[in-house]
């Protein structure tokens, strides 16, 4: 056990609701677009143990403030709620502009880069003074947002322009537009940050971008037995803790692909629910949580054996999962 975890365990003994230090809640948090709530799933029993009300149409969600909080963007409220994990309630909010969908935070956690679907813009918000700092015009329907580890660049996909826009965070200018596959959705870096992987929902593929050259170096296709190419609609993706595998949700093909990051070949396919899109991992990477947008449930997958353990209902139109074990 790491020192911080011991500290938290101690704090937990002394004061069960020690706000700022709370983590290790033993829960998975799943946003539910139609319920205006986060569903809480106990990680031991894999059952729903409660809900936290949120702003309207909660979608993307990330940890913040040393993992003590969840920041959840609400498309219909134009803001993000800040959820205190220990108190299990919203303790504040920050404005995020019209129709925020996906966001990412600067390494210092002070700036949020938000894709504004209707505007066709990447909006930049200073979270400390709670105001918009800038806006960058991008292609229509921007979606996935990812900030580089050094915070110098932010990458955003446009679902209509079929591009990844590379934006300098200092000047807020587009450095490059990289054409990828049809309807690009989400982004993930490989372990050393040299590659940016992009899911192409209608292209049925993943584009691999070299961060150094800012060009596509590979396009990874998928084949699922019994499914047609048209059914393969990748959206969510996440890197394994050891960096060797990229997990890719294949959407309407109802499978998750385990892609070897070195060879870029699919090693395993795991059957999950309908329109598998949001992915999350527990801390040691032993379990993958797959949110199924059409069947309103979540499948928990054992990553070592590539076998589903359980599928449980998690609210109407689940979007994103964050695991806090």
């Amino acid at each position: 056990m790491r020192p911080l975890a011991i500290l938290i365990a101690l704090a937990g003994l002394l004061a069960p609701h020690a706000g700022a230090l709370a983590r290790d809640s033993g829960l998975a948090y799943i946003t539910s677009e139609r319920d205006n709530a986060i569903t809480l799933v106990d990680l031991k029993s894999l059952t729903v143990v409660g809900v936290i009300p949120t702003c309207k149409r909660p979608r993307h969600m990330q940890r913040r403030n040393g993992d003590a909080q969840l920041m959840v963007a609400c498309s219909d409220s134009g803001r993000a709620d800040l959820i205190d994990i220990a108190q299990r309630r919203s303790v504040g909010s920050v404005p995020l502009g019209d129709d925020p969908e996906v966001f990412d935070l600067s390494p210092d956690g002070k700036t949020a880069y938000v894709s504004a679907e209707d505007d066709g813009a990447l909006n930049v918000f200073d979270l400390t003074v709670r105001s918009q700092r800038g806006s960058v015009v991008v292609g229509k329907e921007p979606e996935g947002v990812r900030v580089s580890a050094d915070g110098h660049r932010v990458y955003v996909t446009s679902e209509v322009a079929n591009m990844v826009h590379v934006i300098d965070t200092a000047t807020l200018q587009v450095v490059k537009n990289i054409t990828v596959g049809t309807r690009p959705r989400r982004l993930a870096f490989n372990a050393d940050g040299s590659e940016l992987w992009v899911t192409n929902e209608m292209g049925s593929s993943v584009s691999v971008i070299s961060v150094k050259d800012l060009s596509v170096v590979a396009t990874i296709g998928f084949e699922v037995k019994g499914m047609r190419a048209d059914d393969i609609t990748p959206v969510g993706l996440t890197l394994s803790r050891d960096g060797k595998t990229m997990y890719v949700g294949l959407g309407r093909a109802n499978h998750v692909a385990f892609v070897d990051t070195a060879t870029r070949k699919t090693q395993q396919l795991v059957l999950v629910g309908k329109r598998a899109w949001g992915l999350g991992l527990n801390r040691d990477g032993s379990r993958l949580f797959v949110v199924n947008g059409l069947s309103d449930d979540m499948t928990v997958v054992d990553t070592a054996s590539a076998k589903p353990i359980k599928t449980l209902p998690v609210g109407r139109v689940p979007h994103t999962v964050v695991v806090d074990d």
Partner: peptide
């Protein structure tokens, strides 16, 4: 209009 970004590029 919504293709303008790509057309310009």
């Amino acid at each position: 209009k919504e293709s303008q970004f790509q057309l310009d590029a």
